[in-house]
């Protein structure tokens, strides 16, 4: 029998199919849209198509209670910490850059969450920030890595606020700054936002949709923190961690 872990996030919903010996057998991410239940169903249907699954569904994320059928919900931060520790088995720090928020988690050598932090009220430095900029510049976000690779130098973005940052970027374009240099500056501003959350050490694990889809950001982190790693399919780790947690930690709704 297989189990399903779901991370129902604000931008994307991620699901994993986990074998009885805790291997990931299949995975799927879909855009969440406005209906968490339908996103959850899509993933559950896909993952259970060829495999018999057992309930409850293990869930986390903003939509963690929006599931038809039995589910067991936990905090996505606790779940992510569990999955990352299961993989590395050492003291480390996690930076998770998702659609709407950025998280910092410090994990002890025994796997305890020692400290965690969420980004402040602004979206700057999250996936929503990149999407907004891509929309304004009329470029698909998938092109960002390639453009950043062509940069000759990085510009510095000062604004905290996504709206102000976009105005700042439009100002730079007017000044004739090249697009690759601007994109590299945007990537560096994401790193700056992460560095503001906590004094980062070297054993850094990057997770989430942004590191998965923008390898250049991982590379830039590595230049500053050489011990940085970002496991494959890192955006699925919180979903996987839910299954590993196996039981409710504290009482969630």
């Amino acid at each position: 029998m297989h189990r399903i872990g779901l991370d129902l996030g604000t931008s994307y919903s991620k699901g994993v199919l986990v074998t009885s010996d805790n291997r990931i057998a299949a995975y799927l991410a879909v855009k969440t849209g406005y209906d968490f239940k339908s996103a959850a169903k899509k993933i559950i249907d896909f993952l259970s198509e060829k495999n018999e699954i057992e309930y409850p569904i293990y869930s986390c994320g903003y939509g963690r209670e929006q599931i038809d059928g039995a589910y067991l919900a936990n905090s996505e931060i606790t779940a992510l910490a569990r999955a990352v520790f299961a993989k590395y088995q050492q003291a480390l720090e996690v930076i998770d850059i998702g659609g709407q928020d950025t998280k910092y988690i410090r994990i002890s050598a025994t796997g305890r969450v020692e400290k965690f932090k969420l980004n402040r009220k602004c979206a700057a430095g999250t996936g929503a920030f990149l999407e907004e900029i891509a929309f304004r510049l009329d470029i698909v976000p998938e092109k960002f890595d390639e453009l950043a690779g062509q940069a000759t130098e990085s510009i510095k973005l000062n604004s905290y606020c996504t709206v102000f940052a976009v105005s700042e970027i439009l100002g730079l374009i007017k000044q004739g700054i090249s697009l690759p240099n601007i994109i590299l500056g945007i990537y560096n501003s994401i790193i700056k936002r992460c560095e503001e959350m906590a004094p980062l050490q070297n054993a850094l694990v990057l997770t989430g949709g942004i590191p998965d889809k923008h390898a250049k950001i991982v590379q830039l982190f590595k230049e500053i923190y050489p011990g940085t790693t970002s496991p494959d399919l890192s955006q699925f780790l919180a979903a996987y961690g839910c299954v590993l947690l196996n039981k409710k930690q504290v009482y969630c709704k």
Binding site: I77, T78, L118, Q249
Partner: peptide, 8 residues
């Protein structure tokens, strides 16, 4: 954040 804090 509060739920995770209690987990912690």
């Amino acid at each position: 954040a509060i739920e995770t804090f209690i987990d912690q």
